[in-house]
Amino acid sequence: MQSSTLALPLSEPTAANSAVSQRLPSPLLLKQQMPLSTALAAQVERHRKAVRAILNGEDSRLLLIVGPCSLHDPRSAREYAQRLARLGAEVSDQMLLVMRAYVEKPRTTVGWKGLAYDPHLDGSDDMHAGIALSRGLMLSMLECGLPVATELLQPMAAGYFDDLLSWAAIGARTTESQIHREMVSGLGLPAGFKNGTDGGVGIACDAIRSAAHGHRHFGMDAQGFPAIIETLGNPDTHLVLRGGNQGPNYDRQSIALARQGLAKSGVSPRVMVDCSHANSGKDPMRQPQVFNEVLEQRLQGDTSLIGMMLESHLFDGCQALGNAPLKYGVSITDGCLGWDGTEALLRQGAAALRDIAQEKSAAIR
């Protein structure tokens, strides 16, 4: 879809504020122009139910959120999705693989904010094209048969993609935000709250409790108008450990402390570990080490560990956005583990889980 089909007239700047605004299509309009088919809608609902079953202990599989740190190139994103879909089918007895389709990126100061903001990678911030391209990419991933996940950073952008998602993340910088907690309370899909940047889980525990309750809050309706939003609460949330300023928090002691913190808050002890960020020391090649240590805890019976996240792309590492030409299949944000390493890691993990399952089955017989 061309961005011109979505563009609306510029508003006139005022004397008090020289900023120029440009209207975007409402979420409803974009969804009508790029609809989710009945068949794919049913698929999304099946995937959401599968994620919920894992969270509730009704499905013993491991939940894996896998994919690029951020999407920036549609061609490499589609190739990655096709590979992940094939692998997902092979390991589906032990793992539920969910495509990481992040189109927004949080920034401490400034920088590229993601495909939804700057799809041309040139600072033009063509958000008309960005939201359409992002939705189109997610739809193509659904057509591969994959569940789709993203981080919901800007609440106003969530309505453009929420019908496509089977899982969502709330980042370390926004877990404390009341606005994001209210937003999650109205989502019809599971969501993970990351621990704060200090590494503590108290903020995430508060967020989980808040999101489980209904709220009335300011928001935007599907037509794009300001509205009073009333939510019922979201019971399908959990903690994501991503490390903090003091270092990683995926070791046995940290997991035990996290479980205690959740229990003290009256929150179900279900934990996902982000193998990247502070848990890997921001070294993408250390993600397998984190993955294997967490997997070992799971194999030894820690069922509170319901899943993991991996930042993975077609090739190892990352590259600066200013480089020309950009290397195909290499992240332009955080460094990623390449496909070969990712595939081997997940195959080995599935085999280990399969062995344990067979041992348990033999013991019962």
Rank of each mutant, 00 (worst) to 15 (best):
1 M>L: 12
20 V>G: 07
24 L>H: 09
28 L>D: 09
34 M>T: 05
35 P>Y: 08
36 L>S: 05
42 A>T: 04
46 R>P: 02
48 R>D: 01
51 V>W: 05
55 L>T: 07
55 L>F: 15
61 R>S: 08
62 L>C: 11
79 E>C: 15
85 A>V: 07
86 R>Q: 14
89 A>L: 15
90 E>V: 11
90 E>N: 15
95 M>R: 11
109 T>S: 12
110 V>E: 11
111 G>H: 14
120 H>A: 14
122 D>R: 12
128 H>Y: 06
135 R>N: 08
140 S>Q: 12
144 C>H: 14
149 A>E: 01
150 T>Y: 01
151 E>C: 02
152 L>S: 03
156 M>K: 10
162 D>F: 03
164 L>M: 10
167 W>A: 02
168 A>K: 02
170 I>N: 01
176 E>F: 07
185 S>E: 08
191 A>S: 09
192 G>C: 10
194 K>I: 00
197 T>R: 04
206 D>C: 11
208 I>P: 00
212 A>M: 11
224 G>A: 11
224 G>D: 08
232 L>A: 14
233 G>W: 14
234 N>P: 00
236 D>W: 15
239 L>V: 08
239 L>D: 05
241 L>G: 03
243 G>H: 02
247 G>A: 06
249 N>E: 05
251 D>R: 02
254 S>K: 01
261 G>C: 08
265 S>F: 10
266 G>I: 10
267 V>P: 00
272 M>S: 04
275 C>R: 01
285 M>T: 04
285 M>K: 13
289 Q>H: 03
292 N>A: 03
294 V>C: 05
294 V>F: 00
302 D>V: 06
304 S>Y: 03
305 L>C: 07
307 G>V: 03
310 L>K: 08
310 L>S: 09
313 H>C: 07
315 F>P: 00
318 C>V: 05
325 P>T: 09
338 G>T: 05
343 E>R: 11
352 A>M: 10
352 A>Y: 04
352 A>S: 11
356 I>T: 12
362 A>E: 15
364 I>K: 13
